[in-house]
């Protein structure tokens, strides 16, 4: 049996992820995302120690640089120039919280139970890889949930980042031999697209007066 730090860290990933998704104040949400990313980097580090794979330290470095520093900076650059509260989402806060929690629990349970269908290797269906992979999928699902239910463009960007984080988290189990440089490439890519999206969002705001993605089709005119 593996020690529990990894599980603790991934629990932190989940909780801070929910906070990043549900906080209506964008600045607070960004801070939550920062913490979320820190937990993520921590998970990587824990895996590096546990599985004794030094190349994962590169991952940690890359995650800290991009996810903890650059992306929150980019988001902040946007937030200080625009209204601090997000647009009213399609669901109310309480309802949203309930649904998200249910979704996460159900999804985690589902993935965790049927891991042997997903896991490519024997090792992946064992703990802590098993739980970790389940968490990764759950974070991914959370990202999707944010994408579907939020109107605010910035919140959508955060959703996408969550989605990416879920994917990256799964990589540590699915492709642990991935060279550090490749991972750096991956996360740099994510940073770049966040930058582009932020830039586009501020453009949308200038044109429409709000970052409402529901009104995107008006841009066609």
């Amino acid at each position: 049996m593996y020690p529990s730090p990894i599980l603790t860290l991934t629990l932190g990933v989940l909780i801070t992820g929910v906070a990043a998704a549900e906080l209506r104040n964008l600045a607070a949400s960004t801070w939550a995302y920062l913490v979320h990313s820190l937990f993520l980097a921590g998970t990587f580090a824990a895996f590096a120690i546990v599985t004794d794979s030094p190349q994962l330290y590169w991952w940690v470095l890359a995650a800290v640089l991009t996810k903890v520093i650059f992306i929150p900076l980019l988001l902040r650059w946007y937030i200080i120039r625009h209204p601090a509260t997000e647009l009213r989402p399609t669901l109310g806060l309480r309802l949203s919280l309930v649904i998200l929690s249910l979704l996460l629990i159900v999804f985690f349970k589902l993935v965790h139970t049927h891991m042997n269908f997903i896991a490519p290797t024997e090792a992946a269906s064992l703990e802590p890889a098993r739980s970790n992979l389940a968490v990764a999928f759950t974070v991914f699902a959370m990202g999707l949930y944010v994408l579907v239910t939020r109107r605010d463009a910035v919140k959508n960007v955060i959703g996408l980042c969550l989605l990416e984080n879920g994917a990256h988290l799964s990589l540590v189990v699915l492709a642990p031999t991935l060279p550090g440089t490749l991972f750096i490439g991956l996360v740099t890519n994510v940073t770049l697209f966040v930058w582009v999206l932020i830039y586009v969002t501020s453009g949308i705001y200038q044109l429409l007066g709000s970052p409402d993605t529901f009104r995107l089709s008006e841009l066609r005119r």
Binding site: T113, F117, L144, V148, R150, N156, T213, F214, S217
Partner: peptide, 30 residues
């Protein structure tokens, strides 16, 4: 294609879910 990005994401999710269900049913899933 109503013009909401959220809707498109939803379709993707529905599609993926369908694909997963189909794959599971073909492979004699859970």
């Amino acid at each position: 294609h109503a013009g909401f990005p959220q809707l498109y994401v939803l379709w993707m999710i529905v599609g993926a879910a369908l694909a997963v269900i189909v794959l599971f049913s073909m492979g004699g899933g859970p």
